[in-house]
Structures are given as C-alpha cells and as structure tokens.
C-alpha cells in the first residue's frame, strides 16, 4: 500500500509538471491519469472508466487566468484511486471526487502564493547579474509544484481510501441513490462553466443548434464537432471576403 500510495503521489506530481515544465499538454486531466492509476492499482478497466466519467464532469473545470475552480489533477487521481481501492461504484466515486478536487485547490493557492517569494529571489539575483540564480528561482517553483500534489495524494490514498469506504458504508441507501441521481446532473456544472467562458449573445443560435442536433437528430459528439467546424469555416471565409469587398 505504501508503495502504491507513493507511486500515485509521484504520478500526481509528474502530471502537475506537464503544465509547468512541458508547455501544458493536458496530460494531468483525469481521462489521461485514470488509466495510469488503474495500472498502478492493478485494475486498468476501472481506471479507464473512472477517468472518462470524471472527465465528463470536470470538463468545464478550466484554469484560465489566475485562479482555478478545482484541482482536477489531484481530484481525478484520488477519485479514481478511491473507486478502485474502496470499491465504490462509478457514480459515487465521481460525486466524491468533486468535493475532493475543490478542497485540493487550497494547495494550488498555497503554491502560487509561496512562489511570490521565489519571484522576489529572481529580482535580487537579476540585480546582481547572477543569471543562474534567476534560472534557479524558476526551478524552486517547479519543485514545489511537484512535491505538493505528491504529498497530498500520498496522504489521501494512505488515509483516505479506508475512510472513504467506511463513509460510504455508513451512508444509508436512500442517500446513495440520491447521490447517483445528482452525479448524472453534475456535468451541468462543467457545461455552465464552459458557457461562462465562451458564450456570446451574438452566437446564441449556435448553442441552440448543437442542442437540437444532439437532442432531435441524435448525432454524436464527433458529428456535431464536424458540423460546428464547417459552420465556423464558412463564417470565417465569408467575413473575410466581406472585408475585402469594402
């Protein structure tokens, strides 16, 4: 257990570093880490299923600008680990992972605050012309970004998985059924967050179009994405020609 918890912690640290020192390739998203958690814990199938289910719910949780609504990385890994270790069903594990990821965001705030100290170290080194010191100050932040999720996930797995199992055993069946219902509605948070990001009154019709394509024509995501891309391409081309004609 100790080794597995440590491996999961290292996974969380490395996943976090993807967006820190590798230019952000979305490798910390639950859909990617899920299968690796599954490999570490010896249940790849559940890992894949949990990763996909968590991604559906957390899709809208994006870190744009300074703050993020939740730590999707830590929440995703812990949620998947709990599903496997504590034998929770997918829906319960998803409902549990969300509060975990929101709580874990506290540590993200902590890192970004401590890093201000390293920023000032960079100023001082620059004054002295010590460019190696300026470079080093960046890597102190990297270390913090690696170690913090490692520790949080390690402790979470060591002490949380049993607690999660006990908690779920204590909860009466009626409430568990209610949580399952709620889990179905949770992706609405992600969708609403995405709407906050992209919605523009001018383009309300396109939102309605996507809904109609899925609801009435029963098209899948790929088909809808292709139709959206074609419309956007036509829009781009026609607005370009209009400009040229003027």
């Amino acid at each position: 257990m100790l080794v597995k918890a440590l491996l999961l912690g290292i996974l969380a640290g490395l996943a976090q570093l993807d967006s820190r020192i590798a230019g952000d390739n979305m490798l910390s998203r639950p859909i990617v880490t899920g299968i690796i958690v599954g490999l570490i814990l010896g249940d790849v199938k559940t890992g894949i299923i949990m990763g996909g289910s968590l991604e559906l719910v957390m899709m809208g949780f994006v870190g744009i600008g300074v703050s993020a609504p939740a730590d999707v990385n830590v929440g995703g890994i812990l949620g998947t680990a709990f599903a496997i270790l504590s034998g929770l069903d997918t829906k319960t594990a998803v409902a549990l992972a969300l509060p975990v990821s929101i709580l874990a965001e506290f540590f993200g705030t902590f890192i970004r605050t401590v890093n201000i100290y390293f920023q000032h170290m960079a100023d001082k080194s620059a004054d002295k012309g010590d460019y190696k010191g300026v470079e080093r100050s960046l890597w102190y932040g990297v270390v913090l970004f690696f170690v913090t999720p490692l520790v949080v996930v390690f402790i979470g797995v060591m002490y949380g998985s049993e607690a999660a199992a006990n908690l779920v055993k204590m909860i009466p069946q009626q409430i568990m059924d209610g949580l399952s219902v709620a889990a179905g509605a949770l992706p609405a948070i992600g969708m609403a967050l995405l709407l906050e990001l992209t919605y523009d009154k001018k383009y309300a019709g396109y939102l309605a179009l996507g809904f109609v394509l899925a609801s009435y024509l029963k098209l899948d995501s790929l088909a809808i994405a292709l139709i959206g891309t074609i419309i956007a391409y036509i829009f781009y081309q026609t607005s370009k020609t209009k400009e040229g004609a003027l």
């Binding site: 992209t198 996507g210 109609v212 899925a214």
Partner: peptide, 21 residues
C-alpha cells in the same frame, strides 16, 4: 469568433448528451 462558434455548437450538443436528468 470562429472558435466560439465551434465551441458553442459542441457545448450545445454536450448539454443534451452528457447531462443526465
């Protein structure tokens, strides 16, 4: 604007296919 259009069409579809109530 083109990116927004694709995004909104896809979100519209996802509201229907991914939120289960």
């Amino acid at each position: 604007e083109a990116a927004k259009i694709v995004g909104l069409v896809v979100i519209g579809g996802m509201v229907a296919s991914m939120v289960a109530v």
